[in-house]
Nucleic acid binder design. Structure first.
Lengths: 396, 396
DNA sequence: AATGCTTAGTTTACCTAGTCAACAAAGTGG
DNA sequence: CCACTTTGTTGACTAGGTAAACTAAGCATT
């Protein structure tokens, strides 16, 4: 366990946190440091200086100097020697995952969940704060300050997850929280002294699902809950669209004949009115339910019938979406995994009923409920500092 | 007019053409050279060394050295002095647009159009070769060789446009040409000694429409012709998807009740069966028709009625597509502009009939038929050499 | 006309972060 | 014990930047 060292942290931030423009000189070095760090963090086999040199194509001299700097910054430690492969035994290098921490805050209508995540993706600590009345920005600030008290020098980055439209650290519009144009990142950055990001809840979930994604993978993640949303990830980062509203497909009309009920949005036949968890399981469903209760709700005959209808509507949306962006896979996340294999099977059948010429078969799977929901936000928090060097896989 | 200088061209290719991997050292210099070149090519006001220094944030010494190298490579010339702004008059810099040429070949079922495009986007020369029988790769090679005869030392890059699925310089599958897994780029590169790209026809068109795009603009381009296809451009480059099939939306089913005719693909109710030019204007329509003849076909009462049906089907596809990717604008290209304001108006009305909550209004416009169709391929050809430094705007 | 001030561009000394080559350290096998 | 391999470090060199001094060429004011 490393001790807090304010100097080392500020060195690290100066080195990595992209500071606007003049990256002409240090940019390459930053890139190389992150590649080396990425190898150390991701590679299952033991990583040594020689391995880094071979994999990056840099010389062993440069690899040594990169490792020296990573060790000085406290991100990497030497951990004994490797077996000999015919010559001198190499020094193993490993990520020092508990040197720094990432702060995650998940803000909802009536509660704030806060957590500290280490560089391996482990949740070191988590708290819940129930909030009565309206959600205030100051309450979020206080919750985070309480969590990080005394640990300031180890907090490397932070991310706040909110429901609603976000762009560049600003909560543009959150109906659920009643916030509009709140520069949340700026407020928190001055408060905790670390780069802070703001992310939409659906996007955060998509990043969680992309946790061990291939570099170039393109993935369509659909969230089913009280509402319906989607997100597209490419190589571990998000497609935000021109106005930060990419993925807002919940209220697009997909049923033109035989719509069953009018959605709260006014349009009848929109995707959400057929495929949201509430539409399929009834109004007793809420996002606060656990998996067991949701499974119970899904077991009635009426629910099963409505799940068929919902699957058909979602299949319509997915067919055109996947033809357009040609994803590697489609992930149905949110509370959907609790619906079980029946819903997924129906969805796949409906999806494959009209295969479009010129497109390839795309796998549809459920999201993985076993993944910590802090992983996506943690990954998003780390992006401006360490890029996607660290996998944050949690389990290994 | 600059003379051919083989040495200078090979210097340029060595400097810019990204050669696989080891870009660790020269990468930054390449970046800076391209930024300087981009300023000189794009800026409407006269560009000088001092301007480059200010805009890039580099020092004036570096700007001077960058310009010196661009001049040595033949990409830039000094053109007199600017007005004084209180001190020494600056030396104007301009793009030497006729020093190098880009080869474009548009391959279709029965004809090959070839063209030479200069660095400003002007078509310097163009030829057409009608082909009877099947289209052979060797015929394409010959057509290009004939066009470039004696100009080899000025040809900087080439692009071949083909109908069908393409990926990384390979024609993966072209039903129209009867080609499968043809490594066209590799064949041509050894033939003409310049980096060669292969692009899909719909993608090429999308790049043409993105010719003076803002850097971060995301744009959805839909091609209407004998078939229907789409492409997404972000910041001047294409989203290709996981397997190079992004945008293949033609045969996605969008009409579930009241489909009028079965498409050649077998599915009834697919987008193409309602919205392709052939579906709307009748089987007498072909992609070879000129704008005038197409307009005539569109003027009958029956065609107008079918255009309404087609617009409704396309609107369905566009609503979900634009909610998903949140584009800056939607462009309806291909032969569609010949359909006139009636079709576009109907499409807009249908599109806006069910506005989805949480999304923003997106402008729908026709493609610009006045743009040379060689611009998109030329831009694609130049990408591996000069990135998106040159706008290739043609007219200024 | 002389002087000062401003802007443009070049030259020079220095810095950063690589490479290459020599070498030390620490292993293996005959 | 010695040749050979692999790991990692050290020192000379190189590419491509910066900072600051300097030259060049204009305008404005005395």
């Amino acid at each position: 366990m490393s001790t807090a060292d304010p100097q080392r942290k500020s060195d690290l931030l100066r080195r990595f946190a992209r500071s606007g423009q003049s990256e002409s000189q240090t940019g390459i070095r930053r890139e190389h440091l992150l590649r080396a760090l990425g190898l150390i963090a991701r590679e299952p086999a033991p990583v040594t200086r020689a391995v880094i040199a071979r994999r990056t194509g840099l010389t062993s001299a440069t690899a040594s100097s990169l490792v020296a700097e990573l060790i000085a910054l406290g991100l990497v430690v030497e951990t004994g020697r490797a077996e000999s492969t015919g010559g001198k035994r190499a020094t193993r290098l490993e990520l020092e995952s508990d040197a720094y921490l990432i702060v995650v805050a998940v803000v909802r209508t009536r509660a704030i969940d806060t957590a500290l995540v280490d560089l391996a993706g482990r949740t070191v600590e988590s708290r819940r704060l129930d909030v009565t009345g309206g959600m205030e920005v100051s309450t979020v600030v206080d919750a985070i300050r309480e969590l990080t008290d005394g640990l300031e020098s180890r907090v490397l980055a932070a991310c706040v997850q909110v429901p609603g439209v976000t762009a560049a650290g600003v909560v543009v519009d959150s109906v659920q929280l009643g916030w509009r144009d709140v520069p949340l990142a700026r407020i928190l950055e001055s408060e905790i002294g670390a780069p802070t990001s703001v992310v939409n809840d659906v996007d955060a979930e998509a990043l969680t699902e992309a946790v061990d994604a291939d570099d170039r993978a393109i993935r369509l993640v659909v969230h089913l809950g009280e509402g319906v949303g989607a997100a597209i990830t490419t190589g571990g980062s998000l497609m935000t669209g021109a106005t930060g509203r990419a993925g807002e497909i919940g209220h697009v009309r997909v049923i033109y004949e035989g719509a069953r009920s009018r959605c709260r949005c006014g349009v009848s036949g929109c995707l959400e009115s057929a495929t949201s968890m509430s539409a399929m399981l009834g109004d007793t469903y809420t996002d606060e339910l656990d998996e067991h209760d949701t499974t119970l709700l899904a077991s009635t005959a009426e629910a099963r019938e409505r799940m068929g209808f919902g699957a058909r509507a979602l299949a319509r949306a997915l067919r055109i979406s996947s033809a357009l962006i040609d994803p590697e896979e489609i992930v149905i996340a949110g509370a959907a995994p609790a619906l079980g294999p029946h819903f997924l099977g129906t969805l796949r059948d409906e999806y494959e009923m009209y295969p479009a010429k010129g497109t390839t078969q795309v796998a549809i799977r459920y999201g993985r409920p076993e993944l910590s929901r802090y992983l996506g936000p943690a990954k998003f928090a780390l992006a401006p500092v360490l890029g996607d060097a660290l996998p944050l896989t949690q389990a290994r």
